[in-house]
């Protein structure tokens, strides 16, 4: 299984650390809503099919990635940074892609 890191390109799955269900929303740190915290810590969507999940490229650039992967086929259809604003600018893949286009 290869994951195409936006920084580093296609890399073997052993370079990545799995962090599971990417649909969960972490409550506000000040929140005292125990039910929301319990749900965040323990409850998971576990679909057979496309699954939104978080991986970290821990053996590479260490970026946190939001991946859409099919749990029936292991096929990956999307890899983006977990934060929309993260990775843009000089070091981002978009910028690098543009530079390559010009050459």
């Amino acid at each position: 299984m290869l994951i195409t890191c936006p920084y580093c390109g296609p890399r073997d799955v052993i370079e990545f650390t799995y962090q599971g269900d990417g649909n969960r929303e972490r409550p506000d740190p000040a929140s005292q809503n125990f039910e929301a915290w319990n749900a965040y810590v323990y409850d998971r969507l576990n679909p057979a099919g496309d699954h939104n999940e978080i991986w970290q490229h821990s053996g590479g650039c260490r970026a946190h990635l939001k991946v859409v992967r099919n749990t029936l086929t292991h096929e990956i259809s999307s890899v983006v940074f977990t934060r929309g604003d993260h990775g843009r600018g000089d070091h981002g893949s978009a910028a690098r892609g543009k530079a390559e286009d010009k050459s």
Binding site: N46, P47, A48
Partner: peptide, 19 residues
């Protein structure tokens, strides 16, 4: 291993389980 799928049929989307 199919617990998630079967429970979704019953309308229970999240479980303390990953397959």
């Amino acid at each position: 291993g199919s617990t998630g799928r079967v429970m979704q049929l019953a309308g229970i989307d999240t479980m303390p389980i990953e397959s």
